[in-house]
Design a protein around this nucleic acid. Sequence first.
DNA 1: TAGTGGTCTAGACCACTCT
DNA 2: GAGTGGTCTAGACCACTAC
Lengths: 233, 233
Amino acid sequence: MTTSRKTSFQDVQDEVIRRIQDRIWPQGSLLPTEFELAEEFGCARATVNRALRELAEKGIIDRKRKSGTRVVTAPVKQAVFEIAVVRHTIEERNADYRYALVHRSVDPIPAWLGARLDLPQGAQVVRVKCMHYADNRPFQFEDRWINIATVPDVVGADFSDRGPNEWLLEQVPFTDAEIAMTAVPADAQLSEFLAAPENTPLLQMERTTWLKGAPVTFVRMTYHPGYRMQTRY
Amino acid sequence: MTTSRKTSFQDVQDEVIRRIQDRIWPQGSLLPTEFELAEEFGCARATVNRALRELAEKGIIDRKRKSGTRVVTAPVKQAVFEIAVVRHTIEERNADYRYALVHRSVDPIPAWLGARLDLPQGAQVVRVKCMHYADNRPFQFEDRWINIATVPDVVGADFSDRGPNEWLLEQVPFTDAEIAMTAVPADAQLSEFLAAPENTPLLQMERTTWLKGAPVTFVRMTYHPGYRMQTRY
DNA sequence: TAGTGGTCTAGACCACTCT
DNA sequence: GAGTGGTCTAGACCACTAC
């Protein structure tokens, strides 16, 4: 209605959202069929389909063949956190990024991690600890294990100039991942590197990634005190 | 290739992902045009379009008119946390859910919150504190402010049997929201309700929601010690 | 078995943007 | 100006599922 003369899937979506918000279609109620809506809006059924399909993916409506489309009663909303490279997170805040390598070694995998990743005893990993600073103030402490079997080239990477997160992103373009967020007390090491008294509550993110089922890396990223991980949805 | 004879958008998507993972299309490289891919896969351009559009939404490829489609170099991956009602989170873990109201009052909005929500001094809010238990063990402490102007019916809700989160979901079917996660030390109140020593690190989620631009509620949800918020992507 | 959503097609026009 | 993705159409067939 604004610039184009045809009804776009976006127009349909906006109107559907409006009707849900205005309780014209209350929670639990049945929407008209795609065919009926297409008639009403004067567009093709495919257009209505795309509009409704996206709303279903967002968890706002529930669609079932034969039964039809219903407004969800207790929507399970999805919060999307963008997980970028630390450097980008920092530069987005208009702060200067600095990286420092703390430790690098090649070790056999620790038992607890081997169990977690389903890797045999004696599997070799590269262990890297490093710091990320924003305007020269501690931002994040990174403690990482990289599976040499999956990423053989890691043996030749020394990580003195650039963090393993950026390096890995270039080596392994696309992975599955699992992440978890917890609150942990600062231990001696974290306390030192993040310049916080011991036992200060810190936000910690753990991430495991796989490439086609093969474990790539496990990492613990601990943020400076007071860090807020924020998003809109 | 499995059951259907036509090439589905899913087939196209899987093959594109495979080629990116196998470095047939390395990071930064240009993909064939939709038309060329449609020819190769023997399907309509719309099918290729849907496959690629979804990958672009996931941040795996980058599409620009005229320039074409490229494999993203440093993918900004998105972690999706499902934010459901606490009761569902608990019941999904096969635990018994129990709710307890701790406090309910009608107050003028605190200055710090008024500033945050862009509400005038003296605006009335309902303040609710409550506890959610899993198998009778503290799971989450909820501290909430509800804007009476946006949800007038809240005045008549006493929240003695059911948490304000569930009530609000029924009243306000669809909202915008902003959430933030932090690590906080247990203060006297949290320590008491969550059965944790003072200063124990706790994971806290803050959420603000709006309905069509009008603030609905602000809530702080603090989890029991050791809680992990987890997801795959 | 019939109704509803899920998907694909072949074609068309449009909008952005690089040259 | 021209190439590429973005979207819409009208129709078709399929797949699931409530009846």
